[in-house]
Design a protein around this nucleic acid. Structure first.
Lengths: 222, 222
DNA sequence: CATCTTATTGATCGCGCGATCAATAGCAAA
DNA sequence: TTTGCTATTGATCGCGCGATCAATAAGATG
């Protein structure tokens, strides 16, 4: 089905075509993992010859690495956007955990796993993975630090707490991809652990109702 | 270097050769990950023709899955052996965490990551991964359950605690493969979290000195 | 309209992969 | 020694991969 023979692709500006290829690669990765991002698969998705895809990239290693970055950075931006409207660090952290654990996207998790696995054989991908892990650490650390200065959190080493959270999220997400567990139970696991790590009262990190810190009213940026 | 031309392989019994191939595949996996387990690489390691390796296996998918199982099960047996001589559940758990976190083997972690990643494209591997995750869960759960009946541990849901521990270990191991963190700090992270989850006094799960529960004497099975 | 630039292509290479199969050669039994 | 079984091989197929490059054609420019 669908176009046995393909008409010659419309001529576009280099920038535009490059963008198309980037998003094409992104789509392929979300659908089949980084492993599926190949010269031919991306070309087919964009509606173009493999040679053209190759023409726009130094080599596939960097396209894969860039695609990883694009997918992961986009998700992080999304999460950051969800968290941002909350004002208190506690609510922010609660929202972050809730989003990360209970609305986790399997496609993104797959990309992470592929990144870890393939990263052992691709230097560009390895550095991309490292960079994204650092970015996440930075995001979480910012919230934890805020909470510490506010006095809401009590942590001797915020760095370690951030690391703790991300470690749990990564591990549980990977597991969740293989064998099902109740997302709510997963969420409780993480919130319990973090409430303890931050000296919070039990239940403080369960999903916040609305946007603002104290009252549960007003929209949470849809 | 080393044998440009290979002499004809010595004739061996089918069982013996099959065993050779299994351990050959295991070695390849530990050295280069599951990704490196290929007809030709295993054949080269065993000193045999690719055709012979193929002859002994229904297909590569199952050899890879079996190799995953072999590597992971061997490590679990090793850990179980280290933990076993300790008598109290607390010490057992402490020894398990210590072994798992601070003496973690990168080669085995790589195999785990490849298993998660490649398991999304190989049904036999996927079930093998699932089985090994269950086996680990079983091992940890046994210890936690023991501790609960003893009264040493206080946990509403031992299943969840075991899951909690394994989630952290998986996540932190994966992270450790990419970006370095002090193993001792990693260990503290896990012990702290678990002491809290099990209602233990702080420090109860730090590495045990010797084998027996109460006194620190006697050999811990080298 | 003619010319130039450049986005796009088709053809093709070499590679490593899994897999198959008739031919071979080592070993044991007769 | 001869025969028979079977472990082992060499040759070979088809595949999808990344990569390269001269040829082409679509627009922009004059």
């Amino acid at each position: 089905m669908s176009r046995a023979v393909r008409p010659r692709a419309a001529r576009k500006s280099a920038e535009e075509r490059a963008a198309e290829i980037r998003t094409g690669a992104r789509d392929v990765a979300l659908e089949g993992g980084l492993w599926a991002v190949t010269l031919r698969s991306v070309a087919a998705r964009v509606g173009v010859t493999p040679a053209l895809v190759a023409h726009y990239q130094p080599n596939m290693e960097v396209l894969v690495a860039d695609t990883f970055t694009a997918v992961v950075a986009a998700e992080m931006a999304e999460v950051a956007g969800i968290v941002e409207p909350y004002t208190s660090p506690t609510d922010r952290l609660a929202a972050l955990i809730h989003t990360l654990i209970e609305t986790a996207r399997d496609d993104v998790t797959t990309v992470w796993l592929d990144g870890w696995s393939l990263g052992r054989r691709s230097a560009p991908l390895a550095t991309a993975v490292r960079a994204q892990m650092d970015a996440w650490q930075h995001l979480v650390l910012g919230i934890v630090d805020d909470g510490c200065s506010t006095g809401e959190f009590t942590a001797s080493d915020p760095q370690t707490v951030a690391w703790h959270l991300l470690g749990m999220v990564d591990g549980l997400s990977a597991q969740g991809l293989v064998s099902y567990r109740d997302p709510a139970a997963r969420g409780r696991l993480v919130t319990d652990a973090l409430e303890h790590a931050l000296g919070l009262p039990s239940g403080a990190l369960t999903a916040p109702a609305g946007a603002s810190a104290t009252t549960g009213c007003s929209a949470a940026r849809a």
